[in-house]
Structures are given as structure tokens and as C-alpha cells.
Simulated scan of single mutants.
Amino acid sequence: MDLGLILGIIFLAVDVVISIWNSYNAGEISRSRKGLGITFYTLGGFLPMSYVLAIVLTLVLAYLGYLSLSTSIFLLSFSYLVFGLEIIIWGIIATVSSLITTMGTRSWKAGIITAYDAFATIFDAWEYITTFFSNVKSARKAIDSSDFSIIDVLLILITALGAAFIITYAAYKEGYKARLRYW
């Protein structure tokens, strides 16, 4: 098996776990600060989970032969362009939140999380900026292809958004019901 494929699967699995964890934490935050909790839920749970599910659905359906190559390329490029920018915005918010926690608690654990958040956000931003135009070009080429299907695109995106909402909202509600815990 290819190392890149193995790493890709690991990163997608970690993204699912982090999205669920962020949704749970957003529920806890919502008990005392509703607007902040909803923002954290949307940017840290729901949208990243939608991104992962759109990628997984696209890859599985393309592998099984249900999606054309151009539709698959469009979905992967579009997902990266839209959700990639959202992940960068979330990374900035997560880094600032972690930094505030680190400064308030003086915890080395919080410091490690802050350093990771900062590194991941810088890496994601660099990757997004350097691949932006190639993803736009790929998406435009895919649309112009004769085997492109907007119906397939809409079905996959609606399915990914719906499944992501169900998964992350369940975690959000559990976090909302939980006792507030602090480090």
C-alpha cells in the first residue's frame, strides 16, 4: 500500500475525531456563551466534518465507478477551495483561543496545543495559497468537460453536509448537556 494513501487515511480519520471533539466542546461553550459556541461549532466541527465527508464520498464513489473523472476532480478542487479557506479561518481562531488559554493557565499542555495550532495554521495557509490557482484551473476544466455532472456534485455536497450535521450536532448536544469542565 502507498505511504501517501496511508497518511491520507490517517489525516482524514484524525480530522473526523477533531471535528467531533470541537463540536462537543462547542456545546460546552454554548452553555455560557451561546454565540461563541455556535461559531466554534460551525467553524470547528460542522464545516470541517463536511469537508472530510465530501472527500471520502467523492473518493469512494469515484473508485466504485459512480462518478466521472471530471466530476471527481471538480468536487475535490471545489472542496479544497471552499473548505480549505474555512479551515484556515478556524485555525486562526483556534490558535488565538489556545494562546489565551496558555497565557491564562501557564500550562505547558496548553502551550503545546498553541504551538501545534500555530504550525498547522501556517502550513494550511501556505498550502492553500500555493495551490489556489491550480485548484481553480482544475475546477474550471472539470466543468467544461463533457462528462461533468452538476447533479452528482449537488447530491454529494448535500449528503456530506447532511451527514456532517447529524454527526456533529449529536456531539454538540452531548457537550451542551455535559457539566462544564476546565483544565
Rank of each mutant, 00 (worst) to 15 (best):
M1Y: 05
L3Q: 07
L5D: 03
I6W: 00
G8T: 05
I9M: 13
F11A: 13
V16K: 03
V16T: 05
V17I: 15
I18G: 03
S19F: 08
W21N: 08
S23N: 00
E28W: 00
I29Y: 04
S30L: 12
R31E: 15
S32L: 13
K34I: 10
K34F: 14
G37K: 00
G37S: 11
I38F: 08
F40N: 13
F40D: 08
T42C: 11
T42N: 02
F46L: 15
P48G: 05
P48V: 10
M49D: 04
V52P: 03
L53E: 01
A54L: 15
A54P: 08
I55T: 14
L57T: 05
L59T: 06
V60R: 07
A62Y: 13
Y63F: 12
L67P: 03
S70K: 11
T71S: 11
L76M: 14
F78T: 03
S79A: 12
L81V: 14
F83Q: 04
G84S: 11
L85M: 13
L85C: 06
E86T: 12
E86P: 02
I87A: 14
G91R: 00
I92H: 00
I93P: 05
T95K: 02
S97Y: 05
S98L: 14
L99C: 06
M103T: 08
T105C: 10
T105R: 07
T105I: 08
T105L: 13
T105G: 07
R106Q: 07
K109W: 06
A110D: 13
G111Q: 00
A115K: 09
Y116D: 08
Y116V: 10
A118S: 11
A118D: 02
F119G: 10
T121R: 09
T121V: 11
I122T: 06
I122P: 02
I122F: 02
Y128C: 05
Y128M: 05
T130G: 06
T131C: 07
S134M: 13
N135T: 09
V136A: 03
S138M: 12
A139Q: 06
R140I: 14
K141I: 10
K141P: 01
I143S: 08
I143P: 07
D144C: 06
S146I: 08
I151T: 12
D152H: 01
D152I: 01
L155C: 04
L155P: 00
L155F: 04
I156K: 05
I156P: 10
L157W: 00
F165M: 10
I166V: 15
T168Y: 02
T168P: 04
A170C: 08
E174G: 00
E174Q: 13
Y176S: 12
A178G: 09
R181C: 01
Y182R: 06
